[in-house]
Amino acid sequence: MVSDLKKALGNNKFVITSEIGPPKGTALEKMYQHIEMLKGKVDALNVTDHQSSVMRYPSIGGCLAVRERGGEAVLQMTCRDRNRIALQAELLLAYSRGIKNVLCLTGDAVPVGDHGEARGIFDLDSVQLLHGIRQMEEGYDFGGNELQGAVEFCAGATVTPEAEPLEPQLIKFEKKIDAGAEFFQTQAIYDLERFAGFMEHARQFPVKILAGIVLLSSARMARFMNENVPGIFVPRELIDEMAAAPKGKALEKGIEIAGRTIKALKEEALCDGVHIMAINREEVVPEILAAAGL
């Protein structure tokens, strides 16, 4: 059975996915509320896997909660915490429970998170994980052993259109495509002209590109990302616009900017959809969609 996300991507529809960040602990009510609120408004909910190497409720748990509520789930899977045996086992569990989309990531480094002394596994990298998933679909595990009952996933990966230097990133982008990536979520983009340059390159390949939309909550956050987050470039004008927002209205401005960006991406048919990351503010995603006219 083809996943609903794959169908949506294949229909030349402007696809919208949104991120769900599970909590640290078992107080899951807020995550459930976000899932209930968003499941009918977006094409898929993409659950983070210990984002920034901070230990949380697992992606697979969040994805099961999405499925139980009738939503379409994307399992984020990093190679940081599990070896190839554990990764495959989780893919089997996911498939058996109706989770048919996987986003394959290398994963952030351990020292940036809250368990800085833990061992980083990285038995595989994102390219090898994608490759392995395609092998499982053929009926064989990563070791070449026959599976009793295969899997079928819509597999995606990430790309940073503004990486510096760019060429190594583009080489890896192609390796991910060769390994079987069907869709890509990009690092947050704010400058559409620069993004259009990347899309011109990406359009050569038979993959769907979802532009990353990270909600700006303040001018300070925008500056912080420019200085500290690899591959994020918030243009000066946007920072000024955020800074000029009246006191207490910065978030509203951020929502407006995100909505406006999505609208422009769609109208100019620059890419195949967006992936919205409203980090810790999932409840405003409907407002972003409204601002985008969706």
């Binding site: 990285f122 990486a163 990133q169």
Partner: peptide, 13 residues
């Protein structure tokens, strides 16, 4: 840092 083989991760800058 991650001992990758297939190219840079997204954390490179």
């Amino acid at each position: 840092h991650k001992g990758l083989l297939n190219g840079p991760c997204g954390g490179t800058d």
